[in-house]
């Protein structure tokens, strides 16, 4: 008896549904890798949702410290948002360039993405440093704790993304557009776009909702 031994047709449709689409077998590696990473991203989003929930619970606990409207600067947030949005776009351009194996546009797209990410981080870092200098650090109140953690967690993700981006560029430089490098590039693009989605949540919930009244 070999492994390919066919089983009688009676077993193919035991519940008489009529239409049985045969599963075609294991998916190719590109799909498997990207799907695994997609599942990871969803788990990452669940982690962010905890920090969002904590922020929602603690937002009114200012303990005599400043409220959101007193410390947020909408202009900075707008610049940060535009930076991330444009970087999402350039990241998309870089992944198209990788798919058509065009090194020049790949490097250019990634470099611009990196610069935009660094500008974002610089603005955020300045905002944090400024707040701490004014005595409004995360230890000041539960509200500031939640604010620093949520925004800082996103910032840490962006920093990790920049590190990953540079590693990707180095890898393309060293190894060219190999299949595994392309798979990693796809995962990186997913990661970067997902960070942008989380930032939409951050600027809407933290800066705009909390900065208004």
């Amino acid at each position: 008896m070999s492994m390919t031994a066919a089983v009688g047709d009676a077993h193919a449709d035991p519940h008489h549904i009529g239409l049985v689409v045969e599963h075609p077998g294991p998916a190719p590696k590109r799909i498997v890798t990207a799907y695994g990473f997609w599942v990871f991203l969803l788990s990452d989003i669940v982690m962010f949702s905890c920090f969002f929930a904590a922020y929602a619970v603690l937002v009114s606990q200012t303990a005599g410290g400043p409220k959101g409207s007193e410390i947020f600067e909408q202009r900075n947030v707008a610049i940060e948002t535009v930076c991330l949005l444009l970087s999402s776009f350039t990241c998309g351009m870089a992944s198209i360039a990788a798919d058509v194996r065009n090194r020049f546009w790949f490097y250019l797209g990634m470099a611009v993405t990196c610069v935009l990410g660094l500008i974002f981080l610089a603005i955020e870092f300045r905002e944090f440093a400024d707040l701490v200098a004014r005595g409004y650090g995360p230890s000041r109140s539960a509200f500031l704790t939640a604010f620093f953690s949520l925004v800082g967690c996103h910032g840490l993700h962006v920093s990790a993304g920049v590190l990953w981006l540079l590693t990707m560029m180095a890898q393309v430089f060293a190894k060219g557009f190999r299949a595994d490098v392309l798979r990693r590039m796809m995962c990186f693009a997913l990661f970067w776009h997902a960070l942008d989605i989380i930032w939409v949540g951050v600027f809407s919930v933290v800066y705009l909702l909390g900065g208004g009244s």
């Binding site: 599963h23 075609p24 077998g25 998916a27 190719p28 590696k29 590109r30 799909i31 890798t33 990207a34 799907y35 990473f37 997609w38 299949a179 796809m186 693009a189 997913l190 776009h193």
Partner: peptide, 14 residues
């Protein structure tokens, strides 16, 4: 290996 895939499936992001 990346053999030809018969079914209809797409990686996220593709």
């Amino acid at each position: 290996s990346d053999q030809a895939h018969i079914g209809h499936d797409l990686a996220p992001g593709d």
